[in-house]
Amino acid sequence: MASPLVSIENVDMRYGGPDGTLAVSGLNLKIQRGEFVAVVGPSGCGKSTLMKLTTGLHIPQSGSVVVANSQVTKPVSIVGMAFQNPTMLPWRTTLENILLPLEIVERHRHRLRAHKAEYVAKAEKLLETVGLKGFGEKFPWQLSGGMQQRANLCRALIHEPELLMLDEPFGALDAFTREELWCVIRDLHATQDVTIALVTHDLRESVFLADKVVVMSARPGRIISEHVVPFARPRQLELLYEPAFNEMVQKLHGEIATARAAA
């Protein structure tokens, strides 16, 4: 097997100096190329810390984080991130918002001006993929919450990241919009050559989308179990109502409840 895209080994991360809170301790996680991993756990278990460690926004005090075969010592620009809050810049149109990462990433920023048309075409294609065709010229405040989140996904993907990190991206959406976006993510993962790590509170979401569900313990967070999701792809929403699916969700639920109680 090829070396994993992300390899976190024995990582401790403490906030606020030597006496601060230990957010994660003895963390071990490997994410293979092309894999879809969902991270679940009780609240405050350091899921967001895990994301920040992987993207290089935080450097751990001990242990090692290796992404794409190199030790992480500064932000790695091969990731795209999306949060629950879409954080679209209100003074830019949706299209300009999506192009923003290209103005930052070293590899693209010098090419952007000369190859604008090419990048715009790419952004429009992405918009089409997430069902926002023709909305590029609209301002973010003219879009609904779900549409903003779709645009947010486009922004996270525009620079063709190898790794897409999603931190509860659908937490603030209603149930129907959320299911729609599950399918958008599912199709993105199927068509684009991208590895996805999804942090979520929603167990059904994790089982529906992921190849592997990782359960974290209460603070200080570490991985207590990993579950391979057996359901064949492509998965349809009907899967949500199958007994095997619900059994798995229930099992995860039980594990997290135990982890919470242990805290």
């Binding site: 993207t55 290089g56 926004l57 500064k74 949060f83 809050n85 954080t87 990462p101 930052i104 070293e106």
Partner: peptide, 11 residues
């Protein structure tokens, strides 16, 4: 969050 998104890109 905005800052994180951009810093993760190397801003």
């Amino acid at each position: 969050e905005t800052e994180d998104v951009l810093r993760a890109l190397g801003a």
